[in-house]
Simulated assay, not measured.
Amino acid sequence: MKTQLFTGYLRCIIGLLLITLSMSTKAISSTFDHSHALLNQVLNRHVVVFDNQRKSAVDYQAIANQPKRLDDYLAQLSAVTPTQYASWSFDQQLAFLINAYNAFTIKLITDNIQAFNRGEAQSIRDLGSFFTSPWEQSFFKLLGKQRSLDWLEHKKIRVDFNEPRIHFALVCAAVSCPKLRSEAYQASQLNEQLENQTRLFLSDRDKNGIDETGIYLSKIFKWYGDDFNGIHTFLRHYSDALTDSASDAKSLTHSKLPIRYTDYNWALNTTGVN
């Protein structure tokens, strides 16, 4: 009899613990703003989109002059714990990481805005040192540890997510990068945003297209070719974005056109630069 009572009590305790754990997990998950409202405010105000939505430029000086919104958003990102992150959906996690990469990149530029103003830096690459590139510098906290942009892209996003379209969403503050959107990525519309971003990037004729020699592409496809599981196969899904003519689209579909890669312009994607 005592054994049965003990077993019953034990089951009740375990049940209560499970309920408490579940409620705690939900509470933790709900504390982060998955609308990324603060980042939305920064991007809406300081990103200028042009060339039929294909390109954008950033007013880094204005952000540097009034950094509170960006700093508050970055503080929100840094406060997220690994446990909290693990409780989120796939799309919530990926939107969080993409926004983190773009927001901390903006922070790197604005923290060094005087170097650009003095002409000591022309691109993000000039912010590195003899020993480390700017992408290797662990200058921010994320998921409980000091992190670098390289960690975010190469050891987290590319490892945990089989999603080649992220290469058109991660923006490293250069003219030849895909455009920085004037809105944050959100889980509720992440697929649509990534699809739109991919099509806009491929339809930018300064970076990608088809001419008499074959296909010309951004070096992003060269650097991350393995992520696309066959570049020609990937491009066939976007033939309408890559080319403006039906004959070129047909050629892309039925043959492997030769590929060449365009020069990459690392100049800062600041307002006034085309």
Rank of each mutant, 00 (worst) to 15 (best):
A169E: 09
W88V: 02
R147D: 00
N274E: 13
L97R: 02
W223E: 10
L152G: 09
N65P: 06
Q92S: 10
N40D: 15
N265L: 01
S56K: 06
D91C: 02
A27I: 11
F90G: 00
F116L: 11
T31N: 11
G272T: 05
I28L: 14
Q122G: 15
K219D: 08
Y224R: 01
F130R: 10
G128R: 06
Q189A: 14
P82L: 10
I63A: 07
Q61K: 11
S35C: 08
G225L: 06
S123Q: 04
P258M: 04
A174P: 02
A184P: 11
P82F: 08
Y185V: 09
E120S: 11
K68E: 15
S218N: 13
N40M: 07
N229L: 08
G144S: 08
E195N: 14
H46P: 13
F6P: 00
H154W: 00
L242Q: 03
I113K: 04
H46V: 08
L252W: 01
D71G: 02
H254V: 07
N102D: 08
T213H: 09
L18Y: 02
D211M: 04
N52A: 13
F131P: 03
A249W: 00
K156E: 13
I19G: 07
N196K: 13
K68T: 14
R11Y: 09
N112T: 11
A187W: 01
L43M: 07
